[in-house]
Amino acid sequence: MSSASPALFRYIGVRILQALPLLLGVVVVNFLLIQLAPGDPTTVLIGDYPAPEEYVRQVRAEFGLDQPLPTRLVNYLGQLAQGNLGYSFANRMPVRELILQRLGATILLTGVAMALATVIGVLAGVWAARYRGKATDGVVQTTALLGYSIPEFFLGQILILIFAVWLGWLPSQGMRSARSTATGPAATLEVGLFLILPAIALSMRYVALISRLTRASVAEALTSDYVLGARARGVSERRVLFVHALRNAAAPIVTVIGYNLSFILAGSALVETVFAWPGIGRLLFDSITRRDYPVMTAILLMVSIGVVLANLITDLIQAVIDPRVRYS
């Protein structure tokens, strides 16, 4: 039943064209940071490590560090295009491999946390809107305010204290236990247990945001003419809430996740650090403490590009949810 109209394709094309300069822009920012950092750019490209003399020369040649700035930018873009993100001496492997190795853990954590946030946030928001002004509404709203105000990493520490240190119910450090030999479903289950606390810590802020947004949009829809019209057609109250009113909330919810990717990843970096979760965030923390600059700047670059792409994808999803967007 989807209407994949020419207007939709035109809209997608325009949005992609608009995203290109932003992509170039974030890459240039990254480049400038490396070039303008105090000291020699080679230090930033290699890290604060004693590197072999020939590698230093190789980096200087690859990135053309004796050339003028514009030439260096072109070289930098060329190296990126080839997928060369540099070499991490601290980890003794190319940065690209290092990042790919850690990417899965971060995607798992943030994906589960956002799914959790959406389900809980939507249910709480619909519930609050349905009983607007009642006690339930107050409880949801107050919880949301708390969830929105508590720093993720502090929440993580509290969860560790309660569920790992005091109650001893759940593991809190890493992704699997050190001596684990589990495979197959048992291994999945084990990762799942390790995932519970960090996922809750990371999702809380978005549970709060999504429930507030859902409450507002659903409450607005419930006073709209089209809901009155649906009720006049004998549509059930459940369908009114979850089909008519919630559809109104879908676009803002997608926006809040899509447009907040940079904050989600920032939260993930902090939460991963608290829980020793072996993802990109923990890698970022380690690279900062070890002054492993190529890893640090590469992560910044990945996150920046990710944010631009997430914004783009968000807009495209909006156009699918709300057909009117395509024509604006």
Binding site: G229, G234, R239, R324
Partner: peptide
């Protein structure tokens, strides 16, 4: 006002079908 009494985010057919679905 027929415009405001139709849900803008649902196809016309689905809204006409609603009383039948119910």
């Amino acid at each position: 006002d027929p415009s405001s009494f139709l849900n803008p985010l649902m196809t016309v057919g689905r809204q006409v079908a609603e009383p039948l679905l119910a």
